[in-house]
Simulated assay, not measured.
Amino acid sequence: MTARTTTLVTGPVRSGKSRHAEELLALHRDVLYVATGRPAADDDDAWAERVRSHQHRRPTSWRTLETVDLDAALSEAPGPVLIDCLGTWLTAQVDLVGWDDLPVAAAHLRERTDSLVESLDRVAHPVVIVTNEVGWSLVPMTASGRFFQDELGRLNARVAHVAAAVHLVVAGRVLDLSTLPVVPQSPPPRTLDA
């Protein structure tokens, strides 16, 4: 394991997470921007506008890579990396195995998450990862919605565990959670009182 170089930026939709993540790497000219989202479909103007707004904000010296192979992107990048975002990465991972068998999807996600965490432990250059906080509101009505919510929460906790810093962005404000107590990764063993 090398020194931790990852910053996880989390928060709700439209909170300013991506802008904050970009600002964290603004002084670097050689950033690899890893876009994990699907390409804009011809009939989805709102998604296309979201993609365009992200593209126009980035410095022209930054290189963009559209991929869900985060292990390769992290190992091959010669300098800082910005990954946006874990929610779309998780969706793409489940898309690979299908949403119709959630236990199989969960096993695939555990394997891919283990690999991502190992890659983050090895990387020596700055990495900023954007993710969404879900589950602060209604419980989804569908099994796949609940699965996504649960799995993204688990993924965020795993990545936060290996991150040097964790920032929560809410309503355009940034809270640094880095020095706060950390929940153990697995529950402590139970003891029986005699």
Rank of each mutant, 00 (worst) to 15 (best):
residue 3 A to H: 08
residue 4 R to M: 01
residue 7 T to H: 06
residue 7 T to S: 03
residue 7 T to D: 07
residue 8 L to I: 05
residue 9 V to G: 07
residue 10 T to M: 11
residue 13 V to S: 14
residue 14 R to D: 08
residue 14 R to E: 04
residue 14 R to N: 07
residue 15 S to I: 03
residue 16 G to Y: 06
residue 18 S to T: 13
residue 18 S to Q: 06
residue 21 A to T: 11
residue 23 E to R: 13
residue 23 E to H: 13
residue 23 E to K: 12
residue 25 L to F: 00
residue 26 A to I: 07
residue 27 L to H: 15
residue 28 H to S: 13
residue 29 R to G: 15
residue 30 D to N: 05
residue 32 L to S: 03
residue 34 V to A: 01
residue 34 V to Q: 04
residue 36 T to F: 05
residue 41 A to C: 02
residue 43 D to L: 01
residue 43 D to Q: 00
residue 48 A to L: 02
residue 48 A to F: 02
residue 50 R to P: 15
residue 50 R to Q: 11
residue 50 R to A: 12
residue 52 R to A: 13
residue 56 H to G: 13
residue 57 R to M: 02
residue 60 T to Q: 11
residue 62 W to D: 10
residue 64 T to W: 07
residue 65 L to M: 10
residue 65 L to W: 11
residue 66 E to K: 00
residue 66 E to T: 13
residue 66 E to V: 12
residue 67 T to L: 04
residue 69 D to C: 09
residue 69 D to G: 05
residue 70 L to K: 04
residue 70 L to T: 09
residue 74 L to M: 12
residue 75 S to C: 12
residue 76 E to L: 14
residue 78 P to E: 07
residue 81 V to L: 02
residue 82 L to S: 04
residue 82 L to Q: 02
residue 84 D to M: 06
residue 85 C to R: 07
residue 85 C to G: 06
residue 87 G to C: 01
residue 88 T to M: 06
residue 89 W to I: 05
residue 89 W to K: 04
residue 89 W to D: 00
residue 90 L to E: 06
residue 91 T to K: 03
residue 92 A to G: 12
residue 93 Q to G: 14
residue 95 D to Q: 12
residue 96 L to G: 14
residue 99 W to K: 00
residue 99 W to F: 05
residue 104 V to A: 12
residue 106 A to D: 09
residue 110 R to Q: 08
residue 111 E to V: 12
residue 112 R to L: 04
residue 112 R to E: 08
residue 115 S to F: 02
residue 117 V to K: 10
residue 118 E to C: 13
residue 120 L to W: 10
residue 122 R to H: 05
residue 122 R to F: 01
residue 122 R to M: 02
residue 124 A to N: 10
residue 125 H to D: 12
residue 126 P to C: 00
residue 130 V to D: 00
residue 133 E to I: 07
residue 134 V to H: 00
residue 135 G to P: 15
residue 139 V to G: 15
residue 140 P to F: 05
residue 140 P to R: 07
residue 143 A to G: 13
residue 143 A to T: 13
residue 145 G to P: 11
residue 146 R to Y: 01
residue 147 F to D: 03
residue 147 F to K: 04
residue 150 D to I: 05
residue 153 G to W: 07
residue 153 G to A: 08
residue 153 G to M: 02
residue 158 R to F: 09
residue 159 V to P: 14
residue 165 A to F: 01
residue 166 V to L: 02
residue 166 V to M: 00
residue 166 V to S: 00
residue 168 L to E: 03
residue 169 V to Q: 09
residue 169 V to C: 11
residue 171 A to R: 07
residue 175 L to T: 03
residue 177 L to Q: 03
residue 178 S to M: 00
residue 180 L to K: 06
residue 182 V to Y: 03
residue 184 P to E: 09
residue 185 Q to M: 10
residue 185 Q to W: 02
residue 189 P to Q: 00
residue 189 P to R: 05
residue 189 P to N: 05
residue 190 R to G: 09
residue 192 L to A: 15
residue 194 A to S: 13
